[in-house]
Amino acid sequence: RRRVRAILPYTKVPDTDEISFLKGDMFIVHNELEDGWMWVTNLRTDEQGLIVEDLVEEVGR
């Protein structure tokens, strides 16, 4: 599965499916959606939700 790492921290918008995360958090990407959004699991918190791909970088497989 594709893995990405947060290059900046992010605080979710209330009442959305987004998740908050810290710089350096690692994610497993489950689905890539329209407009640059991805459905992921945060490996640090085990939380699932939406993040925007502009805030992450690819991690070598």
Rank of each mutant, 00 (worst) to 15 (best):
K12I: 00
H30Y: 05
G36E: 04
V40D: 02
E58R: 08
V4K: 04
D54F: 07
K23A: 12
G49M: 00
V13F: 08
G49P: 02
R44W: 00
L8K: 09
R3H: 10
K23V: 09
L33Y: 11
L8H: 12
V59H: 09
I19N: 00
E58M: 06
P9T: 10
W39D: 07
D35Y: 07
E18R: 06
E47P: 00
R61Y: 10
G60Y: 11
H30S: 06
E18V: 06
T45H: 03
R61W: 15
L50Q: 15
K23C: 08
L55T: 08
T41D: 02
L50F: 09
E57R: 08
L33V: 12
W39A: 06
R44P: 01
R2H: 08
L22W: 10
T45M: 00
E34Q: 15
R1A: 09
V4W: 04
I7A: 04
V59M: 13
D17F: 08
L43D: 05
P14F: 06
A6N: 01
E58C: 09
L33P: 11
P14M: 12
G36M: 01
L8I: 09
I28M: 13
L50N: 02
R3Q: 11
Y10T: 00
E57K: 05
T11F: 08
I28R: 07
Y10H: 15
E47Q: 09
D15C: 09
V52R: 15
E34V: 10
D17P: 10
D15Q: 07
E18D: 03
E34S: 13
W39Y: 13
K12L: 03
G49V: 00
F21H: 02
P14E: 11
R1V: 13
D25E: 03
V52S: 14
N31M: 12
W37P: 03
E32Q: 12
H30A: 05
K12S: 10
R1L: 11
W37I: 10
F21M: 04
E53F: 06
K12C: 10
L55M: 14
A6Q: 01
Y10G: 02
E57V: 10
V59G: 08
L43S: 08
L22V: 12
L8S: 13
V29P: 00
D35Q: 14
V4Y: 08
D54E: 11
W39P: 03
E32M: 14
D17Y: 10
V40T: 04
E18Y: 05
W39T: 07
E47I: 04
F27S: 03
R2I: 08
R5L: 07
V56H: 01
M26H: 11
T41A: 04
W39K: 09
P9D: 15
F27D: 03
Y10M: 04
R1Y: 14
V52C: 14
L33N: 08
V13N: 15
N42T: 01
W37C: 13
A6D: 00
G36R: 08
V13P: 06
V52D: 09
K23E: 14
M38H: 02
T41S: 08
M38F: 08
S20V: 00
R44Q: 06
E32P: 06
K23L: 07
R5Y: 06
G36L: 04
T11L: 08
I7E: 04
K23Q: 11
T45R: 01
M26G: 05
T45I: 02
P14T: 10
F21I: 04
D54K: 15
N31W: 12
R5A: 06
R61D: 15
I51V: 14
T41K: 09
E32F: 11
D25K: 00
D54M: 07
K12G: 14
E34P: 15
D17R: 14
T16L: 00
L50K: 15
I19Q: 00
F21W: 01
D46L: 10
T41Q: 07
M38T: 03
D35H: 12
L33T: 12
F27M: 09
V40C: 10
V4H: 03
K12T: 04
T11R: 09
V13C: 14
I51S: 03
I28N: 10
V4N: 02
V4C: 05
T11P: 04
W39E: 14
E18P: 00
I51L: 08
R3V: 10
F21G: 01
P14H: 09
E18T: 07
V59Y: 09
D25H: 01
P14N: 11
V13Q: 14
I28V: 13
I28S: 10
R61Q: 15
W39V: 08
V56K: 03
V13M: 13
V52F: 14
I28K: 11
G36V: 01
G60W: 07
Q48W: 06
G24L: 01
L33I: 10
G49K: 02
E58F: 06
P9M: 06
D46Y: 10
G36D: 04
D54G: 13
T45Q: 00
I28E: 15
G60F: 07
D46K: 15
R3P: 05
D35A: 13
L55V: 08
G24N: 09
V13K: 14
W37F: 13
D25R: 00
I28Y: 10
L43C: 14
G36Y: 01
F21E: 02
E58N: 12
N31T: 12
T11C: 13
G36C: 04
R1W: 06
L22A: 10
